[in-house]
Design a protein around this nucleic acid. Structure first.
Lengths: 118, 118
DNA sequence: CAAATGTATTAGTCAATGCTTATATAAATG
DNA sequence: CATTTATATAAGCATTGACTAATACATTTG
């Protein structure tokens, strides 16, 4: 499943926002999502599976608990896909500052095998 | 259709990349997409409709031609949704430069009614 | 160990999406 | 004006995705 398909679902976007705040047990996520979206535990578990399988999150076991954490890599690729469009909304002067940041980042990662984000 | 759903389709992402290079007639887009994805003219036309309806592009007529251009707004919102996640891949010092840029931008747009991108 | 808790998986349903073929509409052209 | 060109829309079909209910599996607890 492509990163953008993963982000197409509002429940998954919300889960990612939660994980951005730090590691969370599956049950915690279920509770929040249940409250906000009114869907069942299996539904949330299935979304967590999608996030795992697509690389957006990693899990570790702690007893019976499953602790989910964000893996930022796919989001970084989404961010990278936006690069050629940024000139449409980032005014020139400010683009300079951002270019410095992004340019450095890109040099740092130049050696990595990078799947075409399209 | 939510911005992320629109971007979920590879054909639509490719069309947006084309439009990033400037205004294009429908027929031009059809030709490129046909070559790269092997789908029909109506299929492409339907994707162009999705892009129109979701605000990613605007059209003007020129005789029988329809000239499509990028409207960056939805992409900018996607970019904004990524903001809380950037700290995971933008190192501290560089984050400063970006923050300056994004901060300015946000102040400039503070008055606009901004739909929750989630 | 038996019951309870935390989480994942399976099977089945329903709605949404993307495609094709056929056709409609409008402008250009001979 | 008839034909061709440029594009959009409609109808039908297949696939996919998100849900629920039921159940499985593993860990904790009494």
């Amino acid at each position: 499943m492509h990163a953008f398909d993963v982000l197409g679902d509002p429940v998954r976007r919300r889960i990612l926002e939660l994980l951005a705040g730090g590691e969370r047990a599956s049950g915690d996520v279920v509770e929040v999502i249940r409250r906000e979206f009114g869907i069942s535990q299996p539904a949330v578990s299935q979304h967590l599976k999608v996030l795992r399988d697509s690389g957006f999150s990693v899990v570790r076991a702690q007893g019976a608990r499953r602790l989910y954490a964000l893996d930022p890599e796919p989001l970084r690729q989404v961010d990278a896909w936006l690069d050629p469009f940024r000139r449409f909304w980032e005014p020139r002067l400010e683009a300079l500052a951002t270019k410095i940041a992004r340019g450095k980042r890109r040099r740092r990662l130049a050696a990595e095998p990078e799947g075409d984000p399209s």
